[in-house]
Amino acid sequence: MVDLTQYLPILIFLVIAVGLSSAFVFLPMGVARLTGAHKPEPAKLTEYECGFPAFEDARSQFDVRFYLVAILFIIFDLEAAFLFPWAVSLEEIGWAGWATMMIFLAELTLGLVYAWKKGALDWE
């Protein structure tokens, strides 16, 4: 059974938390204008660099390994997602259910071993 009344506080909390943090971001902007602290100038508004104008666009292409980490993360996250219902229904599903999950884990461990041997988990 799902008790939806338990989720309503979360929704209210979400509204309050967003309101609170927006207030924290936008109030000082108003306050700074009132107190006169708000004095933008071109040099102040440039992005951080070590004393010279930036040579190139900051958004450069980066190493493909970041994608690989993200993909491996998705796969293991899904594996964990399959483990969640299993962990709370172990009593009902018995040894058969346990063995099923062990086969599933073995499949994924095979993948992990492959990734390991291929060096996909290495950062040099």
């Binding site: 799902v2 969640f84 219902p85 709370v88 599903i93 058969a96 259910g97 099923t100 999950m101």
Partner: peptide
Amino acid sequence: SNIQQIGELLY
């Protein structure tokens, strides 16, 4: 809870 129900069917 519906996690348990899913678990009992899925495995």
